[in-house]
Design a protein around this nucleic acid. Structure first.
Lengths: 219, 219
DNA sequence: TATAAATTAGGTCACTTGTCCTAGAGGGTC
DNA sequence: GACCCTCTAGGACAAGTGACCTAATTTATA
């Protein structure tokens, strides 16, 4: 199993400015992320971010017009990093489609046990409930994350129509996200994650390969 | 399918005091919950809570020593309500154990589409990451929520040892929780929840009834 | 080295936060 | 009706918040 690690941030370089400015920009976002992960969204004040990054409060205002813009840039950078990583996962090796699906499940569940992922996503979910911008950006992320899942389902069970495939992919993705609060970093079931992975692989494969077209819509 | 609705709060009556005081106490918590659900944890300021409940800021301090105590009382009241409801679900009718498991899955997934549940739990998960008290209380809730799940798994698949049963129950519970961000209230897949329910029922029943002892631990 | 642009530090501003204090109004009991 | 306990309103306080302004410093380039 390859060690799959999602980088903290994916920042699109600014146009113009010195190298120092680019460093400062990244350093601020990195400090903000550290605060969010270690102390929650309540700790995301300009003064704490400034202190964490060894900068002055006024200087943050030079890089970001407002606190809101800073937070949006932060979330965007973190989310972009996940998107890039998921795009890479698509090309993970594996003999059969089943094997590749199992790999994908493993990689995602491993990532969930990361401190960053365990702490970041619940904050994201909570924010998405009351901020339309974050709501949209979050859904973009998960849409991208399900692309490879959709493809694998299509390979394993070609008879399944596209819309049912999509719902199945959502079910699998959502199921894995749900493990975060229970088997994530420093969570009570963290040590049982390997067994949860085994259950997930078995259950998902079984589900994908045996579901008949129209079966979901019946009843 | 019975209309299963979890009450907003479960408050243990205070000792001493007038009826008016009890009303005020509940009214404050109810207003705080409304703010949390409608505007997020950032809106939980004493002044907004006071305004929402038509009270004075200083008066909140009469009922609650501090803001922290207010929030703890709030979360405790909401969580207690869920616990009580889950205890009742155990006795839901159903011919076979399979049928009762299906019922349970349906009830939980229906509840997830509620505005209160969709909005409250992500806030809870986020807070639990940085507050040990909330962390413990949250795990108590889910421990209780899995009790009936454990029993049903035991009935359906008696050969499965207790520890594997527990992990299986966790997997199922976590899977359902994960639907919150995607098919909850006002979420993009809300309309597809019936199909997700169908997938969940089928998948969970299949999993519970066919898992062999030791299968999880292998590999 | 001189110059202009980019970056930084420090301070001020109006506003909001949680906490505390005090005077008074409301309610039950003798 | 007199009394005590319960509840309420209003304001004051220090500390913290995001936004903004200005002067100084650093950097790349001619």
């Amino acid at each position: 199993m390859t060690n799959f690690i999602v980088p903290d941030l994916k920042i699109t370089p600014r146009t113009g400015g010195y190298a120092r400015g680019q460093d400062g920009f990244e350093h601020i976002l990195r400090s903000a992320l550290a605060l969010l992960v270690n102390h929650g969204s309540a700790a995301l004040t300009l003064r704490r971010i400034a202190a964490e990054s060894g900068m002055n409060v006024g200087n943050l205002n030079y890089y970001f017009r407002s606190k809101e813009e800073l937070i949006r840039e932060l979330l965007n950078a973190v989310i972009s990093s996940y998107e890039e990583s998921f795009d890479e996962i698509i090309h993970e090796p594996g003999a059969t489609a089943e094997a590749r699906l199992e790999n994908l499940v493993m990689l995602i569940l491993e990532d969930i046990t990361t401190k960053k992922t365990t702490r970041f996503f619940p904050e994201l979910w909570a924010m998405a409930n009351h901020d339309p911008f974050i709501y949209d950006r979050m859904n973009e992320l998960y849409d991208r994350a399900r692309v490879s899942l959709n493809e694998l389902i299509g390979e394993i069970n070609p008879a399944l129509p596209d819309d049912e495939r999509k719902i199945l992919a959502l079910f699998i993705s959502a199921s894995m996200e749900g493990m975060t609060m229970f088997a994530g970093y420093e969570k009570p079931w963290r040590a049982q994650m390997p067994m949860l992975e085994a259950i997930a692989r078995r259950s998902f494969i079984q589900l994908v390969s045996t579901l008949r077209p129209g079966e979901i819509k019946g009843e």
